[in-house]
Design a protein around this nucleic acid. Sequence first.
DNA 1: CGATATACTATACATAGCGAGGTATATCGT
DNA 2: ACGATATACCTCGCTATGTATAGTATATCG
Lengths: 107, 107
Amino acid sequence: MDAQLKRGVLEICVLAAMREEDTYGYKIIKDLSPFMQVSESTLYPILKRLEQSGCVTEYSVEHNGRLRKYYRITGAGHDKIKDFLNDWDSVMRAYYFIRGEGYYDEK
Amino acid sequence: MDAQLKRGVLEICVLAAMREEDTYGYKIIKDLSPFMQVSESTLYPILKRLEQSGCVTEYSVEHNGRLRKYYRITGAGHDKIKDFLNDWDSVMRAYYFIRGEGYYDEK
DNA sequence: CGATATACTATACATAGCGAGGTATATCGT
DNA sequence: ACGATATACCTCGCTATGTATAGTATATCG
């Protein structure tokens, strides 16, 4: 996916990836890879930002002699996903404008 | 629309806005405003980039004693729109992943 | 025993939206 | 007559964020 298109979508994908169960960085990259390439240098700063903005909490678990960091989504994180889905209408209106088929018929 | 979501969409909207007929900066802002707020400090750099990358050509027409800059989309510009539309599938897959309803059924 | 997978971190760079400010003319209400 | 608003274009600086590159460390597989 185009780097510019990723913005605004990727962060929400990361939150969505931990909706079912707590997860960790490397697993998120693998889970998203079927439809979106994410490099480590992109993901880890995102996780840090999400933690600082209260959208996720983190805790470490020892795994093979190293600490593996798990992330759990918070209420604020769920709210952020909802906000994104509410914004999606305006994205679709832009898409229909670009397709050039005029009015976007509400779902 | 969220600033991050705009990236990758806005530039293509600008190209789409001149598909029917040549247009100019101020008019583009008005034409997009029903579904997307664009400030002048965002638009004019975009038009400059599009010109430098060969997606549009520009020419000036005198209007009320001042020069008004018109923009015309090129073949490369049309190609860019096509590329965007071809990429849209992966955006929708990300959207369906976020919605949490699993597999994205091809249109 | 080297390659690959797993797993996290830090530095430096490029891209692009946007607020704030600048310049200039025309029009409209009071 | 005059201030507000609309039209029309441009630039500077800030900020957010994707990404390449590199570093650290263990386990596994051929």
